[in-house]
Amino acid sequence: MRQARHPEVGEMALTEVMAALSDPIRVGLVRLLSDGRERGWGELRAPVAKSTLSHHLRVLRDAGLTRTRQEGTRCFVELRRGDLDARFPGLLPAVLGAAEQEDVGHQVGLAASPAGQRR
């Protein structure tokens, strides 16, 4: 895998961020990553093919919502909460609150999670 490009905070465009958040699977990924933990791509589960999940992760990264890191053959992803809050104050809490209220992205989870944690 070539080195992934991540937009700088000033390069993040509201229209691209909103477009990335227009899909329930991507909203589910953002909800899952909102706990602040970096996750391996292999930990993520969604009702789509692996290639489609990879596409969703790329859309989130290209919009500046996530940061991807490669370590050997494994890829990891984390939410860029601080950068998003700096660029678009209040946007992420509003999106997460509405997604929680409407249960958007509920079908996204983790392959294996400790008891009591959302899958």
Results as ranks from 00 to 15, higher is better:
P7M: 06
R39C: 04
F88R: 06
L91P: 10
E38I: 01
D23E: 14
V9R: 09
E8S: 11
A20W: 01
E8A: 15
I25P: 02
G97W: 06
G40T: 07
L110F: 05
Q70P: 04
H55T: 11
R67E: 13
L14D: 03
V104E: 01
K50T: 11
D103A: 15
R5P: 00
M12Y: 05
L65N: 02
D35G: 06
L14M: 15
G72P: 04
P114G: 07
L84P: 03
R58P: 00
D23I: 04
W41G: 04
E16V: 00
R39I: 04
T15A: 15
D23H: 15
D35Y: 03
E71Y: 08
M1R: 12
R26L: 07
R87P: 05
L65E: 01
G105C: 09
A13H: 07
V17I: 14
A112C: 06
S34T: 04
G109C: 10
G109Y: 10
E102M: 08
E102Q: 13
R37E: 10
A98G: 07
G116H: 12
M12R: 14
R31W: 04
Q3Y: 11
H55M: 11
H6T: 15
L60Y: 02
R87Y: 10
D23W: 07
Q70R: 15
A98S: 12
G109T: 05
P114M: 06
Q3E: 15
G42P: 07
L29A: 02
P89W: 09
Q70V: 14
L44F: 02
V77A: 03
Q3R: 15
H106D: 13
A112W: 11
V30Q: 02
P114S: 07
T15W: 12
V27D: 01
L32M: 15
M1P: 11
R26H: 05
V9S: 04
E78H: 01
L57C: 03
R39H: 12
E38W: 02
Q3P: 04
V104S: 01
R2M: 06
R80L: 10
A94Q: 14
G90Q: 08
D35T: 08
T68F: 00
R5N: 03
E100Q: 14
L44R: 00
L33H: 03
P114F: 12
H56Q: 14
H56W: 06
Q117K: 10
Q70M: 13
G42S: 13
E38C: 03
A46M: 05
E102T: 04
L33V: 08
G105D: 01
F88S: 08
D23R: 09
A63I: 00
G10P: 08
D23P: 03
V108N: 02
G97I: 08
R69I: 12
E78K: 09
M12D: 05
E100A: 14
G40K: 12
D35L: 05
P114R: 13
G72F: 06
A86I: 01
G72Y: 07
Q117A: 10
V59E: 07
L96Y: 11
G64M: 02
L65D: 02
T52P: 02
Q117L: 13
D85C: 06
A94V: 07
V48N: 05
T66L: 00
R61Q: 13
E71V: 14
L91K: 14
S113L: 12
A99I: 09
V77Y: 00
D23V: 09
E38K: 08
S34A: 15
M18C: 10
D35K: 03
L96W: 12
A49I: 06
R80V: 06
T52W: 07
R74D: 07
R45S: 06
H106K: 12
